[in-house]
Nucleic acid binder design. Structure first.
Lengths: 110, 110
DNA sequence: TTTTAATACCTTGTATTGCATGGTACTAAA
DNA sequence: TTTAGTACCATGCAATACAAGGTATTAAAA
């Protein structure tokens, strides 16, 4: 149980990154995102996602558009903006650096 | 500047993991840890580290011993316990999963 | 001897943020 | 017209990283 907390914390840190990775490839609305993230073992709930999307939108990295649905209320589809794409490039670099860091720490030998 | 925040957040999530990776290989006291982490671009300050080490110790993952210093007050050297080692194995698994997750999300194609 | 500088420990207060919970609104079917 | 399903969003709490400041020990300088 202690482990799950740290496991969760690891995943938290890359949550924004994951969202942007997904939205780069397909417009999605919140239940879409939750499903996709669940498939990737990133368990996330609405209460986390909505504020996060709001922040990313307010930063100019995301936009959205409404789409009618045949089975319920309209859906808010988020998509990545050009600024979001370049932000994503930086996150790619951050991620690579982080991988490199962990690799280094695993092989401290001096 | 926005990037640095997310970059930092990514690194936060694996901070405990990094600490344990280091302590598995050498006993260290706080200024040691800060130096090593700085070399790995994980910028961390005392105010973060002390409470974190306290938590890990209280969870049984770390122990410590005092050592005299020739250049100042005695140092508190932390080391990893057997429980810490097995916790670390779980974190290794979490990290591998996280890498796998990101890899998957980068190649969503359906 | 007294003071200063360096080193190392630790605590407190603040801000961020993920999550649990609950609320509102639209659609379709019973 | 009521109920169930779907989707949006907001509020309050808890965890935690960090900034800032405080205490204690040692050694060297005054």
């Amino acid at each position: 149980m202690e482990n799950e907390k740290t496991n969760a914390q690891m995943r938290k840190g890359v949550l924004e990154y994951c969202i942007l990775l997904i939205l780069k490839q397909r417009k999605s609305y919140v239940p879409d995102l939750i499903d996709l993230l669940k498939q990737s073992k990133m368990v996330v709930v609405e209460g986390t996602l909505y504020p996060l999307l709001m922040r990313l939108k307010n930063s100019g990295y995301l936009g959205y558009e409404w789409q009618e649905s045949t089975s319920g209320p309209p859906r808010k589809y988020y998509f990545i903006t050009p600024e979001g794409e370049s932000f994503l490039l930086e996150l790619d670099a951050s991620w690579r650096e982080l991988e490199e860091t962990i690799h280094q720490l695993k092989t401290l030998n001096n």
